[in-house]
Each structure stands twice: as C-alpha cells, then as structure tokens.
Amino acid sequence: MNKTIICSTCGTQFLANPGVPEFCPICTDDRQYVPESGQLWTETIELKNRNIKITQLNEQLYALKITPEFAIAQRALLLVSPNGNILWDCIPYLDKPTIDFINNLGGLKAIAFSHPHYYSNMNDWASEFDCPIYIHQNDAEWVPFKTRHTRLWDGNSMQLWDGINIVHIGGHFAGSCVLHVPELTTKGAMLCGDTFNIGRSKQHIAIMYSYPNIIMLPRDEFEKAYKKASHIDFDTIYGAFENQDIEGNAKEIFETSMQRYKDSYAL
C-alpha cells in the first residue's frame, strides 16, 4: 500500500513514496500560501482526535465539516438524489460514523469538485464508497495522484442524473466548476465551492484568481467565467464554508456583484 502524507495548510493528500515532498505544490501556487512557520505535514492517524460535524441544510443536502477545524476548514456538501448521491468537494478526513451515515442514505455514486484546493483525501473517499471522482481536464495537473476512480472530463458541462450538471466556469482555476441542481429549490441551486466566494454579509459574491492573496482575475478571464455562470438558473447558492448560504435571492445578488466587477474593469 502506498504511504501518504497530508499538507497541514491545505489538507491535500500526497504520496510519500519514495519520500515526503519538500513543499506542497498547491500551497506554493499564488492562489494559496505556505505559512510563515514553513511547510508542515501530517498523517491521517494524527487526525483521529477529530470528528466530522454533519448539518442538514435542505431536505436533500448535508454539510460535512471537520471539527476542530483543520487546514482550510472548508465543508463538503452531500447531495442526496433519487438516482445516486453526490459528494461535492471533499474534506481531508473520513471516519466510521460518517461512512455509516452516508451508507444509510444509499452511499455515494460520485464525487465532484469545484477546484483543486478541496481535493483533500479524495482517493480515500472514492475507495471507501467505490465511486468515480469527476475532475475537469483543465485541472488535471493539480491531481496529486490518480487511481482507478479518477475520471477527467472536458467541455462546458457534464450531465450526471436527475437533471444535475457539473458546469465548467473557469476563473479561480482553469478547471473551476459549479454543481447545478435544478430540483433542489424552486428555481434551482448552485453549489459553488470556491469558484465563487460568498461575502460575510451575504450581499456580495466574489470571483478572484486568489482569495487569500487578494489577486484579481484578468478581465478576459472574468468575462468568460461570468458569461458561463450567467446562463445558470438558480435562486439559492451554497458556498464552501459555514454561513455561506444565500437562499431565495441568490441570482439577484450574483448579478449585482458581477456588475460591480464589470464596472471596475471598465475603469
């Protein structure tokens, strides 16, 4: 069995054979960071004192988050759907209570991603639930290591089932995506991860090259991403972190926020 190691800053799992990498390639990229204390690594066994908090957001949607917080502290979203459940994004730990909870709901039929910062220990999850991992081809270079579960896809969208689509947006990463779930709410829901970032006031939605380093997107990249997202019908958006849910008027807030970007690029 291959030995693995986990970056303590972003939570991404890498192979430790033949040796531990000097630096995490995801954290040395401008969209992330290596902390001032330097590169730190950990192993799954060191996370055993943590739990996964499960919160129901909707009749068909649950949030999964490691507690106490670890690494980026994002949540994964578990979508329960008649023809198969989907895990949107991932968290770098999986325990037996969570395995049992998901299996009681019918297991997983797929894991899909917004972008590379949330790949985490995706291969452990895919192995446990024996399901494919869907990643856009444009982000293939960021996959730490592939297994038989890895599925790279290309194009503007990938239809799953029950009307659910992975939609390629770009912007934050070349392969950044959202998950569109038309039947989750009255006008549909968008699960966005960090492809878009919901402000604390919930009155603004951001799209940037780097959120922690506050780097704007080039104008042409913004315009391409906005054009793709503008065609999606939704009234609700669920982001990567707790308290990043906008219900009912999300499309209006999205359009207002994107107009601010358009106005700033016009200066």
Rank of each mutant, 00 (worst) to 15 (best):
S210A: 02
Y211R: 04
G107C: 13
N197L: 12
L78H: 06
N58P: 00
I52Y: 08
I6K: 11
L64I: 00
G84A: 09
F23T: 12
F101T: 02
K109W: 02
L87R: 01
D29Y: 11
L108K: 01
V20N: 02
P18K: 04
G248K: 04
Q56L: 04
W41Y: 04
M122K: 15
Y62C: 02
T236H: 09
I102L: 10
I214W: 03
A250R: 07
H180E: 15
E247P: 03
I164M: 05
N121K: 06
K228I: 10
G248I: 03
D139Q: 01
L217E: 13
D124L: 15
F234D: 10
Y62H: 05
P92G: 06
I237C: 09
S8P: 04
Q159F: 15
N197R: 15
I205T: 11
A140Y: 14
I164K: 07
D30R: 09
T186I: 15
T98Q: 09
G175T: 03
L179I: 07
Y93C: 09
I215S: 10
W142C: 06
R148E: 14
E242T: 09
T28R: 14
K53N: 05
H168S: 13
M122S: 08
I111Q: 09
P25H: 05
C90M: 03
A71L: 06
L184M: 08
N123K: 14
P97D: 15
I232W: 11
G38S: 13
G38V: 05
I214Y: 13
H136D: 12
L57P: 04
G163D: 14
F241T: 09
R31W: 09
Y33M: 09
S120P: 01
I86A: 07
S257H: 13
G199V: 02
N249S: 00
D162L: 07
F241Q: 07
G106Q: 12
S230W: 02
Q60K: 07
Y238H: 06
I205A: 12
P144A: 11
F101Y: 04
K65F: 04
P68Y: 08
S210L: 12
I111R: 07
A225N: 11
H180R: 15
W125C: 01
I135K: 04
G38W: 01
D233E: 15
T236V: 00
Y265L: 03
L87K: 02
L87M: 06
P18W: 11
N243C: 03
N138E: 15
L87T: 04
Y265P: 09
A112P: 02
F101C: 04
S257D: 10
G239P: 05
